[in-house]
Design a protein around this nucleic acid. Structure first.
Lengths: 114, 114
DNA sequence: GACCACTATTCAGTGTTACTATCTACTGGT
DNA sequence: ACCAGTAGATAGTAACACTGAATAGTGGTC
């Protein structure tokens, strides 16, 4: 993956996964597959699993072990109340950043900062 | 600063500074002050200086030492051709991310991912 | 029954980045 | 002599994504 993307994913990948879990419960393998479909072609599986461990340890998700028909048991993650609060804060931080960057993106093609 | 903001700045702060330099040449102290005005209240000065050293070492900017009337000489940074290319790539990466996140932000308040 | 593909998770080690805290250095005012 | 404001550098830390590999279960095939 590009160095820029790798660095930019720091912090945002967490929000992405939490946002996915806000839609519905999911397990690691599933999340990884979905991310690949969405164009995050080479996000390593290991990265997603490590992230899931982190958000579990922070108490943002509830976990349930569910047997799979084809393979080892799945760890299904569900966003809880704390996770929802944390996700809200993520969106606020994200909005702040996008506002600044949109501003910069437009100024860049004009006269610069004053 | 919030943990989320700290992590999200990784990768994006570099783009922000390059975007500022795309508008006009600037030196570290000035950039820090401008960031503070823009609401990046507690970005440490050391962070900006370290970032400037990095982008200089990568050859994205040209540097000129300019004497100051009140203080030690300033290191004025100017975006060069390579820097402009790198900034273009930054914007492409940024756009990709914002598209995915906007999609997630809207789905979140609807039926979830399918 | 040995091998392989697919599903599913874990983990040790690495590189990059922003933060904290501190230090140096120059100018002007009190 | 001291201090505030200006200007930059640096050593050590924490957090995160990546690489590469290992483990484990199921089903199919030769």
């Amino acid at each position: 993956m590009g160095r820029q993307m790798t660095e930019m994913l720091k912090g945002t990948l967490e929000g992405i996964v939490l946002a996915i879990l806000a839609g519905r419960s999911a397990y690691g393998y599933e999340i990884t597959a979905w991310l690949r479909e969405q164009g995050f072609a080479d996000i390593a599986e290991g990265t997603v699993y490590a992230l899931l461990v982190r958000i579990e340890q922070r108490g943002l998700v509830d976990v349930e072990k569910v047997p799979s028909e084809k393979g080892p048991p799945r760890k299904v993650y569900t966003l809880n109340g704390e996770g929802r609060d944390y996700l809200d804060e993520f969106w606020r931080t994200w909005s702040f950043l996008t506002e600044r960057l949109e501003q910069l993106q437009h100024q860049e093609h004009q006269e610069g900062i004053q």
